[in-house]
Amino acid sequence: MEKRTDKNSYTILFAVVMVVVVGALLAFTASSLKPSITENQRLEKQQNILYALGINDNDESNAVFISTAKAPEAFKNNVTDQLVITIDASGKIVKTQTRDEYVAETKQEPYLIDVKKEQENAKNGKNRKLPLFVGQRDGNTYYVAPIYGKGLWDAIWGYVAVDKDMVVQGAYFDHKGETPGLGANIKQRYFMDDFIGEHLLSEDGVFKGITVAKGNADPKNNNKTDNAVDAIAGATITGDGVTAMIKSDLKLYKPYFDTLKNN
């Protein structure tokens, strides 16, 4: 190697130029692609919610979303309202807004509410907004709630559709960076389908959640009232993360479902 490249001044100059060039390149790429990335993410949220609602293009064994071309139309037709329930730090409902009320107040669609940010608000003792999507499928009304938590490596999240008795009617899970072949399988159909029909409440109406359990002696998932589904081998911590986010996030909706029952 040439002598000139060993000089300190050259090294520093090179480092500075490299950082500026690469930084500018990345910033340019990120900002010029941002609109289409945001649009993709928006459509994906609609697809996720529709998937949980049971509106998808599933084939025999794979989970397939409804196509991005059809998603906005299906979302408009099947999601009849997007409620925003505001709860205070003690979990009591402060107010419940319909989509139109919420959009009039904030100029934002409720399905774009950042669940992670709301969790942080709650942690700081502030009010938390809980979006709840009211959907129609085959003449039944289902409620889809978003959940968010952490797996082994990074964030995991999902959408769970329940009926008015908090019996699960559909579930969609996704992850940012779980291990391929192990934790990443939470977005496989065989795992997500196990949740369908499971009860979130115990028989006397107490919120129990659904535990992703090892060795629950029910691998075929025949028992729908045991508040448990079969875990994925080799993915203990991701499974525990799913259990935890179902417990902590869906529990918050219980007071709202209580009010549904009283009406």
């Binding site: 190697m1 490249t5 060993d6 050259y10 090179f14 480092a15």
Partner: peptide, 12 residues
């Protein structure tokens, strides 16, 4: 390869 300073080549 001819312009990378050898001291910081790994970072580069």
């Amino acid at each position: 390869r001819n312009v990378i300073p050898s001291k910081i080549r790994i970072i580069v």
